[in-house]
Simulated scan of single mutants.
Amino acid sequence: MLNVLLVEDDLDLADTVVQFLELEGIRCDHGANGMAGLQLAKEGGYQVLLLDINLPRLDGLSLCEKLRDGGDDTPVLMLTARDGLDDKLAGFKAGTDDYLVKPFALKELVVRLEALARRRSGQVRKLSCADLEMNLRDKTVSREGKILKLSPTGWRLLEALLRASPEVVSRQALEEAVWEDDIPDSNSLKVHIFHLRKAIDLPFSSPLLQTVAGHGFAIRENSVE
């Protein structure tokens, strides 16, 4: 079942949306202000977030920006009465994935939700695991606060691994993420993984880049047997 979060201070509208989505087989939790929405979103488990722009305590754009800065890549659909280009550009800058202008058709809402639920957001600003952080906005990688130097290929590998963390990424998926259709010889990935592990793990006490025999690689804290 699709699980979404609605953050909307118009209680009548929120009640209508929640009831309609439930009829469509979509579970919808509700937060009535920005701070409540932030707390619910951090608890996780949602495939899409529906955020009203004009919220008490914390507006929708600020809420979205806080989530993105914290590494949350859940797709965000912004609900707004503003349909001007400047307003939409501000939303995309804050990390919004899509807009739906009020008043909207509930059927259209369902279509937008289902489309967004099929992917993770590309608007996240920070990816992390334990003390390893990749800042996509500043194009920096650090561990224990120390800036690490990566090659462009190492950067793409680490980004693919962190986006999937703690799940395993297959060799094929990593090769496609780095080289797309121009995949080099079979030893290239092995060499680049070696250099990536040397950069992010060798100077530190706990390894994060794990090799999962027969499956691929993962960035995670626990060791792989």
Rank of each mutant, 00 (worst) to 15 (best):
S186L: 10
D86L: 02
G122V: 04
V110M: 08
I219G: 02
D10Y: 01
C64S: 13
V168K: 03
L209N: 03
E144I: 06
K190F: 08
G84W: 03
C64G: 08
A199Y: 00
D29N: 01
P152A: 08
S142E: 14
L89T: 11
V48S: 06
A117C: 04
T16E: 02
A36S: 05
L51S: 09
F20L: 06
E22N: 02
D98Q: 15
L49P: 15
Q39M: 10
V224S: 15
F204W: 03
I183C: 07
V212N: 03
F194K: 10
L100W: 06
N222G: 01
Q39I: 14
P207N: 01
L49K: 11
Q123Y: 01
N222P: 00
S151N: 02
R156Q: 08
V7Q: 13
Q39L: 14
D59C: 04
N3K: 15
V4Q: 03
V191Y: 09
T16R: 09
A177G: 10
A177H: 05
D86Q: 03
G216S: 02
K88W: 14
K139D: 05
A213R: 13
V101M: 02
L189R: 12
E8M: 10
R156E: 05
T153D: 13
D52M: 09
Q210V: 02
P56F: 10
E114S: 02
R156N: 09
G214M: 04
Y46S: 15
R171M: 03
Q19M: 03
N222V: 11
K88C: 15
K139G: 00
L136V: 06
E175P: 03
G25P: 01
C64Y: 07
V124M: 03
T80H: 04
F92N: 07
G70A: 14
N3P: 10
P184Q: 07
V178L: 05
V224D: 13
G95A: 14
V48H: 12
V48P: 11
P184V: 12
D69V: 12
V178A: 13
K102D: 00
M78G: 07
L189K: 12
Q39D: 14
S186R: 14
D15C: 04
C64V: 14
I53M: 07
K93C: 06
L79V: 09
P75L: 02
E225Y: 08
S223K: 13
D98Y: 10
G122W: 00
D131E: 11
A199E: 03
R27N: 09
L113W: 00
L61T: 09
D52K: 04
Q172G: 00
